[in-house]
Design a protein around this nucleic acid. Sequence first.
RNA 1: GGCGGCGUGGCCGAGUGGUUCAGGCAGGGGCCUGCAAAGCCCUUCACCCGGGUUCGAUUCCCGGCGCCGCCUCCA
Length: 484
Amino acid sequence: MPGDPARPTSSSTLTLRLHDSATGQVRPLALRQAGEVSMYVCGPTVYDVPHLGHGRFTLVFDVLRRYLRFVGLRVRYVSNVTDVDDKILERARQEGCPATEVAARYEAVWWEAMAQLAVERPDEVPHATAWVPQMVALVEELVAKGAAYEAPDGVYLDVSRVPDYGLLALQPLASLRAGARVAGGEAKRHPFDFALWKKVPGTQDQVSWPSPFGPGRPGWHTECVVMSLGLLGEGFDLHGGGQDLRFPHHENERAQAVALGRAFARHWVHNGFVEVEGQKMSKSLGNFTSLPDLLAQADPRAYRLLVLRSHYRRPLEVTPATVGDAESGLARLDALARRFPEAVAAGAQVDRASEAIRAGVPAAALEGFCRAMDEDLDTPGALAGIFELVRQAHQAADAGQENEALGLARAVGCLAGALGLALGDHALGPGRTEPDEEAKALLAARDEARQARRFEEADRLRDELAARGWTVEDSPEGSRLRPR
RNA sequence: GGCGGCGUGGCCGAGUGGUUCAGGCAGGGGCCUGCAAAGCCCUUCACCCGGGUUCGAUUCCCGGCGCCGCCUCCA
């Protein structure tokens, strides 16, 4: 096919450039193995309901994952669930129930929210509690190498043994130290030494595992090292998470791998915060909106659109107003899907760029999309292109250029789909799907009345439909119904 | 104190050394429509301040002001 864009459809040459937190530069994502991407994204600690920040990072990495697959790569996506942690234990204590119950409950809430957001389930979801023996082995190895030491209350990594500690913080250990505060009660040597293993006194009723250092539980920074290396192997391609994980969490993961002499993530990707009134949304600030709350109030796709509309590294303002904006924008996309249902659906079936042209997606549309996405995941640019296609499709149809309109509509379905956005009324969610028989009958009766120029009757029927929750749209292609 | 980032039109949010300065939402006008809805066309509104570099800066440099984040559990 002429104009077939070989570049974005090749599976062996990836042209994606991504910002790497370790260098501060946007640089090509250089894969360990051509055609395959291994990515690890730090998942939730399941001690409470997820908030909008969790929603953002999962959407960002879901989009990255989908795009990598779209351009022809095999993606292995691993994201953990931290199911043992001080916060979970604290919650269990408050509620007087087992920690495992707390973790199970909030993990269920998590997956329900993910399903609503249409975030695809990771290929692997390692749980910290299932990897404790491996973590113990890792701690032992670090101690044996002299990079970690045992103290009365636990085992700590000696950050002074990690030459480039501070890489992800973009400053050397010495300058970090200036602002460091030592947590009280911890028997560590250096303020930045961190717990690999927390000893649990045997008499206390707490969750613990046996170890050569006595009963205890793993430190948070250890699980991701063990699980990422265990599932993806050394030198895996990409490690991601929210900006706040950059330091100290990711720094400390890296430090362990460096101390062990094992190659770790080749590329570090961090997304920006969700903000409210210009301030970071976080549990500790108490200004968070829970993800389930948002999803109950708005079309879940609106949040995806809102997230896509800004660049992933920038802060994102989430308010009822911005969510409402996104819903209006979504309505514009859905309107196209209503006008060209088959074409948009056909486009959405295409899940590889390499198949898009054959499926009737204009090459220029595909190229523009990939050009934007390849430049550090420019989803705002990609989205702008999609909205442009929407306009062109309507234009072409209004001008009677049917084939051109259908091609553009297919492109919209395909590219929105590549971003994880399903379009059309069927995507609106429960209770807002297809018109029932009665509604269809009313619409037919109205068509008849209009045909006969009995406009009073037609308007009465339209009111009737409105009362049942349907808005009537007339078009050259005929009349149709839209949920209000 | 150290480090990083940001300040764009009514709102959200991209981007660029200069000519048509993305896109969405909202506003105004028009077309279409029996009337609407949807759509199309046109349109209002812009680059924090002060210097500098330049033929020319919103875009580069310096200074200022303001805001935010990390350095502590945090997506």
